[in-house]
Nucleic acid binder design. Sequence first.
DNA 1: CGCATCTTTGAGTACCGTCAATCCGCGTGG
DNA 2: CCACGCGGATTGACGGTACTCAAAGATGCG
Lengths: 225, 225
Amino acid sequence: MSKCDSCIIKEFNSLKSLTRDELMRVSACKTGKVYRKGQVIFEEGETLNGVYCVRDGVCKLTKLSENGKDQVVKLVVKGGLLGKRSLVSDQKTNLSAVALNDMEMCFIPKAEIMKDLSKNPKFTMDVLKEMAEDLKEADESLVNMAQKSVKARTAEILLYIHDHFGTDTEGFLSIVLSREDYASIVGTATESAIRILSQFKKDGLISTSGKRIKIEDSNGLKWIE
Amino acid sequence: MSKCDSCIIKEFNSLKSLTRDELMRVSACKTGKVYRKGQVIFEEGETLNGVYCVRDGVCKLTKLSENGKDQVVKLVVKGGLLGKRSLVSDQKTNLSAVALNDMEMCFIPKAEIMKDLSKNPKFTMDVLKEMAEDLKEADESLVNMAQKSVKARTAEILLYIHDHFGTDTEGFLSIVLSREDYASIVGTATESAIRILSQFKKDGLISTSGKRIKIEDSNGLKWIE
DNA sequence: CGCATCTTTGAGTACCGTCAATCCGCGTGG
DNA sequence: CCACGCGGATTGACGGTACTCAAAGATGCG
């Protein structure tokens, strides 16, 4: 397995603040894991004894609501760290993680990370900053969820995916989600999400090929309300 | 002004992890501020050059949504620290803070806090934990907002205020909010919030006296959906 | 007492959730 | 090669929820 030292992925997260020495130690104790599409990485309420570093693929972080529906809280791609929060606050996970396509990950044991947190202030500060960013995003999502219509939220998530995760060579969104996933992100019934996506298609804002979606008029989507 | 050293408030937040020495320095450079009900402490987009420590009173953290309505993201009482996130990530604030009643606060300059963050790992770790807790709460709010009815959310906020902030000697919620504030927390139109509160009153779940609200049947509220 | 603000209530409408039926793509087994 | 069945996608219909506009009542302050 490759050394963390020379792993390009670490540049995307706070592991970049570790010293060469610390990275070597991390390398020595980390384990690689592969998850298939749909596979559960961890479940809400589990005790994690480490963090996951996403090398490839996409996963969703979800939380089960009292009405029995999953709500997607965040999408995580290459470079993301899973389990930070639980590790830091020394609690069971409050979210579940499920692979949306085939994934490759590194698992770093808790002890190693905690040691680095206590010894390397720069690293700690970096983790703090990442957490601050997550919090800011969560606040923004909260406001969107509370104040915008389902249609506006649907348009927004399409643009978000387009802007953050890009498109494939044919112009389709590179992250492919089921209608149910879209509904679970937007926080609505599957049928509602479907209805809105069909409407967008009719209006020429998007086009589809199987499950794949292509944005045809991003400017049009921007003004949905 | 009292010394932070002997201030009981610090026990409620991460300042408790500072050493006696550090607390003396904080004491030396902090300034006391008083805010009247309705006064703005800081506004979304401002640059903060320090954090506020709430000694007394309550304030709301809000975010303006695109449709022009404020959404309350969090209520902060005695012991809370305002501005952590902005300071850590060195960004402008993403939230506004407004006093809900008369408040007494201490303002600690950025430089002092940042020095402590870089020198005292225990303090940093504590801030990290607080941020992790905020993040967890934000995720929970997000799910509630996405999946629960306005009525259920209204019942929940009443119970939340009751459980977290307590009641006065007559049994009324010790935090008094306008109907508009309730609407802004729940994320709905003021009239909707009002309608639901009246319904609760009719059903004997709550009673009111002016703006003050008393919970009569907390168990009944729990099962609203 | 009068004005300003907040609260309450009504009526109409649009949005959204649910149930149910149908359709489509795809893999399986005959 | 085709019938079959499964799961996801789609559409229709209906009822309930929540938003808006509007008006009337209550409250508090000067």
